[in-house]
């Protein structure tokens, strides 16, 4: 099965990272020491420029997003985009006092900023994934972010899980605005999905409200993450390769008559009227994310795979579409 449904990185981590993970594995009867967790925070500090005291570790960024919702939505409403990263949407719906979602529809994908600003006037926890999953779009710019942050009633969380592919971040505002938090992950660009290392860069309002109990990450995850952050050249080279494949894939999909939208991530949102396209691909050994159930029928999210995987995807799509016109 070619997995193009979970936005994973098709490139494995480099040898040095795998060796560190193995080293961690040999000591798994012991919890990871605080010093080691601190070392990871220092590495993240070096990478992001955010002081380590403003960093929290988390097993994947979705876990810390959940903790944020649990901690800050009791007396404030949660505002999110729809569509958005599903586990976060679901968690907010279940646990917040009130949940308001912004309806964003293709092909224009417009976020009306004045409506968002108006809605955020009351005490709110605004959670926006930027770039957005599954549209692949960036909806935030500095003016909008600063405007939201200037309202002290607002807590703003920006999920930057795909930052290394978009190149745009708001993390530099964390030092200045206590009501801003940015979540990141090493699952994607760092090729560590199976080790689940996420982190939060947060202003003081968030740090005060979150439990100061330290999350202990698995030892192999911590060792591997430290090693991965030392080898940024490898990460950035893979991100570049994926971006270049993304460009090619969008072009080729559009040639096939499948509408592929622009993206700032390692995945592409596509639209096809062909019924059951997701199932047809799955039968032929390719998994893509069918968004019918959770969003709009006819929309799919396809992760950018290795060039050869993308070629198989394109060939398979060609076959499926040809079968249709022969019938």
């Amino acid at each position: 099965m070619i997995r193009l449904d979970l936005n994973e990185n098709p490139y494995p981590p480099p040898r040095s990272v795998l060796e560190e993970a193995e080293k961690g594995l040999r000591e798994v009867n012991r919890y990871c020491e605080q010093a080691c967790l601190d070392e990871l925070k220092r590495s993240i500090e070096e990478y992001t420029g955010i002081p380590w005291r403003s960093i929290k570790l988390s097993p994947g960024s979705d876990t810390i997003l959940r903790e944020i919702i649990h901690s800050f939505s009791i007396d404030r409403k949660v505002i999110m985009l729809n569509p958005s990263f599903l586990p976060t949407l679901e968690c907010a719906k279940r646990h917040s006092r009130k949940m308001v979602k912004f309806h964003i529809t293709p092909p224009e994908f417009i976020l009306k900023r004045e409506i968002l600003q108006e809605e955020a006037r009351e005490p709110s926890l605004v959670i926006i994934d930027n770039p957005n999953n599954p549209t692949g779009r960036e909806f935030l710019d500095k003016d909008l972010v600063v405007d939201l942050l200037d309202n002290k009633n607002t807590l703003l969380v920006i999920d930057e899980a795909y930052y290394e592919f978009s190149g745009n971040t708001f993390s530099n505002l964390v030092n200045e605005y206590g009501n801003l938090a940015v979540t990141r992950t090493l699952d994607k660009a760092f090729s560590l999905a199976g080790l689940r290392v996420g982190y939060l860069l947060a202003g003081e309002k968030f740090m005060e409200g979150l439990s100061d109990f330290n999350v202990i990450l698995p030892r192999p995850s911590v060792y591997a993450a430290i090693a991965a952050l030392k080898n940024m050249q490898y990460v950035m080279e893979n991100a570049r390769r994926i971006r270049s494949e993304r460009k090619r894939l969008i072009r080729e999909l559009n040639k096939l008559g499948i509408e592929a939208y622009k993206s700032s991530t390692n995945f592409i949102l596509v639209k096809s009227e062909f019924p059951g396209l997701g199932d047809k691909l799955r039968v032929k050994g390719i998994a893509v994310r069918d968004l019918s159930r959770d969003w709009i029928p006819g929309y799919y999210r396809i992760s950018v795979g290795l060039p050869e995987e993308n070629n198989i995807l394109l060939e398979t799509l060609k076959e499926i579409l040809a079968d249709e016109s022969n019938n």
Binding site: D5, L6, L86, P87, L89, E90, G276, G278, D279, R282, A287, R289, D290, S292, R293, D294, P297
Partner: peptide, 15 residues
């Protein structure tokens, strides 16, 4: 018409 269920980390109860 419901598309076939996909087992994944993003499986949700919105269905």
């Amino acid at each position: 018409i419901e598309p076939l269920l996909q087992a994944s980390k993003e499986a949700s109860n919105t269905s």
